[in-house]
Design a protein around this nucleic acid. Structure first.
Lengths: 250, 250
DNA sequence: ACGTTTTTGAATTTTTATGATTGATTTTTG
DNA sequence: CAAAAATCAATCATAAAAATTCAAAAACGT
């Protein structure tokens, strides 16, 4: 028999060689049954690692698979969606909110009510927002090629014209002493300003960011409510004392 | 048997070599039946990957194509693309330019040098620009759902922070008396401001916009150089007297 | 070791993709 | 302009694959 992550690895590796694989090939490759492979494919599709087609699976174009992405299987992605769903439920009709760039926040969009106004610095969010008929404003700024976030002076200038009921932020590090951090100082400034313009700020993050420190500081812990999934009790207690945390359980 | 994505890939590869393929060729290439290929072609046409023609399928020229297509002699280029190519050739290395939203201006992007800075209000332009490694800034503003252009007060505020060597504009009407016009007043304001911030302004348009008048006025004729394709001699003379016109011939 | 939960594989029903067939439409040919 | 040839759209039967269900096996925590 074969462990689940090992099979997933084999499937993704097979898709690196060819742009599509037949289900039967995967059955032979892994010595598992059809049913098992099917279940694997369902999981991997949900995690946006591949596209399922009749007869097998195909690589999805547009997304390059980073090695780090392969390791985290769909197990880490289902919780991510749960967090997003909860965060989305905090937004009320008529709200005016700021959405930070990045994939974590992107996941929230399907769960937003549509009678709201959204301001964002995430280029990738716009199509999704407009399809939901949400009134969308973009701030200006330099379009960062890697993340398609708008940053820099233009972004800060644009932001100054707005005030928000709520804002939702992605971060790279959450640390009890150093607060919220992210690698790019320019991005940090945008996040910091957006938070200060909001009546209520939320940091949306999975547990992997806790006790991490990135290069540039955004703000102190107490300036936002953290929305995350299950933590080990020690960590949870440690942070509960510093700021509000909402733990989303399955 | 063969998986669907694999067939699709073969079809698209075939269209990279030749500008059109016969259905029968695809049948042999893929060992599938006519019906299957027909169904594939319908799908691919719906996805805007090709155009279906009697007897097979043809490449469509609107989409972004491989760099090979840039090398094609100008005689094969459609008028719109010819105009775009000429407009692109006006941009010099080191320039800082403004690109208006809209499909006409979008066509210019493949013909731009990459050592430039671009500011734009066209959301759809950004991906294309970044893929060419062009330093790209977006202005802020309301994201208009139909055209994905950024307009409104946020757009005007953002623009004020920039100055441009050149700007390239799309318009809906060019009229010897009423000047340049476009249907949306908010868009007109953005265009007007961008033009006034540029050392040199260019209106890029095919001949269909001449003598047309849309609702909102952008600017007088003499404030921009018009880049267009062949006009009837009367029209050309009429406008020559009011502003500079570059007529691109095949 | 025991009961519980999760994972797996086989058997089923349902759905889907395919290729052949038909008649209609378009293009080519005389 | 009409007849012939080619291509197309629509329908249908069938074979392949997907979803569903259920029981056995493995992993897990106590």
């Amino acid at each position: 028999m074969m462990l689940e992550p090992e099979r997933h690895q084999i499937i993704l590796e097979a898709l690196k060689v060819k742009s599509s694989v037949k289900l039967q090939e995967l059955v032979e490759l892994t010595n598992s049954s059809e049913s098992t492979i099917r279940r694997d494919l369902i999981q991997l599709e949900q995690g946006k690692f591949l596209k399922r087609v009749h007869g097998g699976a195909a690589r999805l174009q547009g997304k390059l698979q980073e090695p780090s992405m392969i390791e985290k299987s769909s197990k880490n992605l289902q919780p991510k969606r749960q967090i997003a769903q909860y965060a989305g439920s905090l937004v009320e009709e008529g709200d005016c909110i700021y959405l930070d760039a990045g994939s974590t926040i992107f996941e929230m969009i399907p769960f937003l009510p549509d009678n709201i106004v959204v301001v964002t610095n995430g280029l990738t969010h716009v199509n999704e927002l407009l399809e939901k008929n949400i009134k969308t404003f973009l701030i200006g700024g330099y379009a960062k090629p890697s993340t398609k976030a708008l940053i820099g002076r233009g972004a800060l200038d644009s932001l100054e014209h707005y005030r928000f009921d709520k804002c939702f932020m992605g971060v790279n590090g959450i640390h009890s002493q150093f607060g919220y951090t992210t690698p790019d100082p320019d991005e940090a400034m945008v996040k910091k300003l957006a938070m200060s313009l909001s009546r209520e700020a939320f940091v949306v993050s999975d547990e992997s960011k806790f006790s991490e420190i990135a290069f540039a500081k955004i703000a102190d812990l107490h300036l936002a409510t953290i929305i995350t999934n299950e933590l080990d009790p020690d960590t949870e207690e440690q942070y509960q004392s510093k700021t509000k945390i909402k733990v989303v359980t399955s």
